[in-house]
Simulated scan of single mutants.
Amino acid sequence: MAVTLEQPARARLVTSEGRERPLPVTLRYEAADPLAVQITFPPEASLDGAEVTWIFARQLLEEGLRAPAGGGDVHIWPCGRARTVLEFHAPQGLALVQFDRAVLRRFLLRTYAVVGTGREAAGLDLDQDLARLLGGV
């Protein structure tokens, strides 16, 4: 049975005016996809009024808690002593979201309790996943 972790969290959306708006989000980790983490934002946080989920590497989150990390669509960096900033780039624009670092660290530790560092490949069935991608399963 694949384990899924969900952790509600409070974040702060930084607006284009530089204000911070509280934002409830859901942090998610699925043992079936052990290399990735997910953050789901509520409909009121998106331009089109739909819930938005970002999926990115768990390793990126770990690195971004210590030092600036990322490229492409997701960048993460420490901000002061207690916060971490996640920057998401999309065709419609970008979003800056701040978290209390302790919340992200606690979530990350919970993911490693499910699938430890270096054990991610043990739960993957590459042949089955490839067949599914190619329409064989």
Rank of each mutant, 00 (worst) to 15 (best):
E17D: 15
D48N: 06
R10E: 15
G70A: 10
P91K: 12
E120P: 00
F56A: 02
E17H: 14
L61Q: 12
Q59M: 09
L86Q: 03
F88K: 00
Q92F: 14
G93C: 13
G116F: 08
L5N: 12
R132V: 01
P24K: 04
L86R: 06
D48Y: 05
G18F: 06
D33F: 03
A82H: 12
R101I: 04
E6T: 15
Q59P: 12
D127M: 09
G136S: 13
F41W: 00
I55M: 11
D33C: 07
A36Q: 07
E44G: 03
L60T: 01
R106I: 00
T53E: 15
A69S: 10
I39K: 04
P42E: 03
L86C: 12
L130I: 07
T111S: 02
L13V: 01
P78N: 00
E30H: 05
A122Y: 12
M1T: 08
F56Y: 13
L27C: 00
T40K: 07
L23V: 01
L23S: 00
E62T: 06
L126V: 08
G136Y: 13
V103S: 10
F99I: 02
T26N: 11
G18K: 01
R106S: 14
H89R: 13
L86I: 14
A82Y: 10
P68K: 07
A9Q: 05
Q98W: 14
A9G: 10
V25I: 13
T84R: 01
G64K: 02
R21I: 10
R10S: 14
Y112M: 06
A95S: 10
R21M: 14
A2H: 07
A69N: 11
E20V: 09
G18E: 09
A50M: 10
V25M: 05
T4P: 08
W77L: 12
D129P: 05
E20Y: 01
L96W: 10
G49R: 01
V3C: 02
L94K: 09
E51V: 11
V103W: 03
A50N: 13
F88P: 02
D48A: 08
A36K: 09
L96Q: 09
L47P: 13
G49N: 13
P24A: 14
Q92M: 14
D73Q: 11
G136V: 11
L65P: 03
R132C: 01
T53G: 08
W77R: 09
P22D: 07
R101S: 02
R106W: 05
A45D: 07
